[in-house]
Structures are given as C-alpha cells and as structure tokens.
C-alpha cells in the first residue's frame, strides 16, 4: 500500500470518534426537524421516521415568529459590525503605521478588553442600559457588541494591515498622491479582503451572542435568534422539538457554511498577530 494512503487511513481512524461526536448533533438536528410531530416521543427512541415533513419549516416560521427574530439578529449583527469596523479601521491603521505616545499602553488595553467577557459585567451593563433607557432596545446590543468586538477587530485588522508594505503608500506620495489619495487608491483596495474577513467574523460573533441578548431584551418581539430558540425550550411544559430543531437548522447552517469557508483566514490572522 502507498505510504500516504496508509497514513491517511490511520489518521482518519484516529479522528473518527471525534468526527462522529461533532457530526452527531447535526444529524439530531436534521432528523428531528423533518420528523412528523407525533413521532417525536416514541418508545423505544429511534432514529427512523415514517416521512419527511418539510412543512415543519414553514409551520415553525409562522408559529415561532422566526422571521422577526431573524430580522432582529441581522439588524444587531450588521449594525454592530458596521460600528465596530468604522471605529476599528482608523485605529488599526494608526497601530500599524504610526509611532505615537502611549502605543504600548493602548495595545495592552486592547489585549485586556479582548479578554473581558460580557458575563462578568452583565449586571453593570444592564444597569447602564437602564440608566440610558435602552433596555428592550436592540441598539443596546449594537453598542455593547461593537464595544466588546472592537478589540478583536482592531487586532485582526492591524495584523493584516501590517502585511501591506508601507513603501507602497510612500511610492504613491512620491508619485504625487496626497495622504488621502494614497489611502483611497492604494491602501484601501489592498485592505478590502482583510476588512471583509474581519467583518464576517464580527458578524458571526453578534449572530451567536446569547447572554447580553437574553438580558437586555425582555419582549419577545425583539428577541434575537439564539434567545428566540432558547425561549422555545426554557421553562415550557410542552416543547415543540421539531420546530426548535428546524429553527436551529435555519439559524446555524448558513453561518456554519460561511465560517467553514473562511476559517483559514482566521487561522492566518491569529498566526499573524493575535496569538504569536
């Protein structure tokens, strides 16, 4: 047998338990989502079911107010990402291009806020939003997500910006460009991929956030997807599991696909700056 083939078989055998455990919840999700309601609780429990009920998805959409939660999640994720990027891009540019007093302290501050988790501050954040009159307002999430994400986006952006050679901009200045022109014509076009990748990760962070959304949003009209799905499960006597699973499929699969496609950029970004 070819050595590489043999090695591949051994590796896959070693990975297989983990692969099974990782894929197991996905299987559970799909199999439950398309199952007829009266086959949810059968004894003994079994994987098989009589027919694919694609209608579960449409039913779930209406009954659980999925559309509204989807919109809320999009609203919060898009706006918080936009806010974080608008504030991060200049900061990351300054970090990668200029020396300035307090730069070291600023980098330390970034590293520390990157580690700061909302859960520890959740009570204080809630009181802050009460004081601002922003409880039950999606914009409270926009602000907090942006603030907590910024350390990550600045870090990620500056590690990419630093790979764009400075002498390209210098060459443009000598060619007759102003700072602004060189930024627009030379730097930004080269930085677009980095900004797109960073934006997508920031978006996913907002999309997946749970604790703050659970705390700040009290009325079900303003629930984001994770809270909406959680509310279908928590404290209910009768849980419509086929709807819950249909909801998780719709909420997670698109994000999982985008993430899988982009994960190599995250690895590269971390290798460039965040971890090394």
């Amino acid at each position: 047998m070819q050595p590489k083939l043999k090695k591949s078989l051994i590796y896959w055998a070693m990975l297989s338990p983990l692969v099974v455990v990782i894929l197991f919840p996905f299987a559970v999700m799909f199999v439950t989502a398309v199952r007829p309601r009266d086959e949810l609780f059968v004894y003994p429990p079994r994987w098989g079911f009589s027919e694919f009920r694609w209608g579960n998805f449409a039913e779930m959409w209406v009954k659980t107010n999925f559309g509204e939660a989807l919109f809320n999640s999009l609203y919060v994720s898009v706006l918080s990402t936009a806010l974080a990027l608008v504030l991060s891009i200049p900061a990351a540019y300054a970090l990668s291009r200029y020396r300035f007093p307090g730069k070291g302290a600023y980098r330390t501050f970034l590293l520390m806020t990157q580690m700061m988790s909302p859960i520890v501050l959740v009570l204080g954040l809630f009181r802050l939003m009460v004081a601002l009159g922003m409880v039950n307002n999606l914009n409270s999430l926009v602000l907090t997500y942006a603030a907590f994400n910024m350390a990550f986006t600045i870090w990620m952006l500056q590690s990419y910006f630093s790979t764009i050679p400075r002498d390209l901009e210098e060459a443009a200045w000598i060619d007759g460009a102003s700072h602004f022109t060189s930024l627009v014509r030379i730097f930004l076009p080269l930085a677009v991929p980095a900004m797109a990748v960073t934006a997508i990760f920031s978006f996913i962070n907002g999309w997946n956030e749970f604790v703050l959304a659970l705390t700040m949003i009290r009325s079900s009209d303003d629930f984001t997807l994770p809270v909406q799905i959680y509310s279908q499960v928590a404290g209910r006597y009768q849980v419509e599991w086929h709807h819950v699973m249909a909801g998780t499929v719709l909420a997670t699969v698109p994000v999982a696909i985008v993430f899988s496609w982009l994960q190599k950029y995250l690895i590269r970004g971390m290798a460039l700056g965040a971890v090394k």
Partner: peptide
C-alpha cells in the same frame, strides 16, 4: 524614487 522592494502597486 526606486524602492528596495520595488513597491509596485499589486
């Protein structure tokens, strides 16, 4: 100016 790493706009 001609730069050491050429600084061509990629």
């Amino acid at each position: 100016m001609v730069f050491q790493n050429y600084a061509l706009y990629p």
